[in-house]
Design a protein around this nucleic acid. Structure first.
Lengths: 236, 236
DNA sequence: CACACATCTATTGTGGACAATAATGGTGCG
DNA sequence: CGCACCATTATTGTCCACAATAGATGTGTG
């Protein structure tokens, strides 16, 4: 007996998955008509889904101009990862030594899934890596913390989609395993340290060199124009 | 030249204000038809507003059963305030000694507004007290932190609406002023201490006695039934 | 030839109608 | 008299059509 989710929820989860798996890259225009046709639903449902995604910061949605996958700036990236550090440190602090048998089972099962996805090499591994962190947050039993971690991890994945040079070895699965081990051992300090280091290794792939991230068409073309001796006037 | 906000935004902000000012109490049913008629817009816009409010956790929205103002449990209250402690401590840590002249002006102006509202005694003082904390978050310049604080403060206000015995002296304005002074002086430790104490004084009004907060009708009626000698069977 | 203006087209914002689902009240049977 | 079932009603979920706005295109004029 499934919960009979509405079409808006269907579209929402589909789009979210597509974005987190990088099938829809940042900046991609999301036309209501196109999406509605693809999913065989009306624009009404699509609009609801898009608004929910905006609520999570995954899509930009400006009036009368339509929706597009968010394009976080390098500044956004630093902002997000800074807060992510804080939130996930709290998660492992709360979880250290508190994992039940059931919890450990879920974690192990998830890591197993990650391994398989990574060996297959599909895009799912990217999404699963993020969902590991969300799963950890859920195990704290704190709805608020879960909610925030879910959002910050999603935006983190989006940022990686934009900035990461190679996403072959996204979240190293063995790092996840080490975190689980430390949590099970009840070593809060070690778990927190591992988590911070893990996030650091994720962030360095993205944040390291800030400038080349400009997606602004004008700035890009300016370089080419100047190279040819054309004077780029203060064009609006 | 106003931004020409859409009708959905209009309804959203109106409902949000009403909820945060406790004009709409937790549990209040929010019929789409009624709201649409009151605001003279179509249900489409109302639905969009309600979904946005759900995104912030201010309204509960279950399928085919309609929307209602969220009724946080006592457990939710503890959860929210625990996270709020963490987030707002971070805010003051980042702000200590970093306030520019412009920032101080905005803060002073806001506190002034609070004082006036409190003297008038209108419901606006409740909302303004929360917005002070949101303003602080904005001054950090971190969009993510601002976003989370905004949400957690909103839900905090909702919780106070449900649990606080008297909301005459909501957030003591002078506590706000003391925090500003500590921030201006650049004393991070004092500011953090003041903020935590301030939040504590807000929380005690709500959290102190946990049990009497049950809104579950069945549980309430059970007591009355038993008192009259009626045996409450293991109903569904 | 460059610029400004007007028109045109495509896309979003909004409204109202229909369909589907859940709650309510009535009715008949045991 | 109590219970279960069915019809009715009210509310939400979805769709489609129209209105409004922004961007693009074309045209005329200096």
């Amino acid at each position: 007996m499934e919960p009979k989710q509405s079409r808006a929820d269907l579209v929402y989860s589909a789009l979210r998955e597509a974005i987190l798996e990088q099938a829809l890259r940042p900046g991609t225009k999301l036309s209501e008509d196109v999406i509605a046709e693809q999913f065989a639903v009306s624009r009404t449902s699509v609009r609801a889904a898009l608004q929910q995604l905006r609520g999570e910061g995954l899509v930009d949605l400006q009036a009368n101009k339509g929706a597009s996958v968010s394009e976080p700036t390098a500044e956004d990236a630093r902002d997000v990862f800074a807060l992510r550090h804080m939130l996930e440190a709290e998660v492992v602090r709360r979880l250290a030594g508190q994992l039940g048998e059931r919890d450990r089972g879920r974690l192990r099962a998830h890591v197993q899934q990650e391994k398989q996805a990574q060996s297959v090499g599909g895009p799912a591994s990217i999404r699963l890596a993020g969902e590991f962190h969300i799963l950890l947050a859920e195990l704290t039993g704190s709805p608020s913390l879960t909610r925030f971690v879910r959002e910050i991890v999603s935006r983190g994945s989006l940022i990686l989609a934009r900035f990461a040079r190679d996403h072959s070895s996204e979240c190293a699965v063995d790092e996840h395993e080490r975190i689980i081990a430390a949590l099970q051992a009840g070593d809060a300090g070690a778990a927190e340290e591992l988590m911070l280091r893990h996030l650091e290794s994720v962030a360095v792939r993205a944040d390291l060199q800030a400038p080349p991230t400009r997606g602004d068409t004008a700035d890009i073309l300016k370089r080419y124009a100047e190279r040819r001796g054309l004077l780029a006037g203060a064009g609006r």
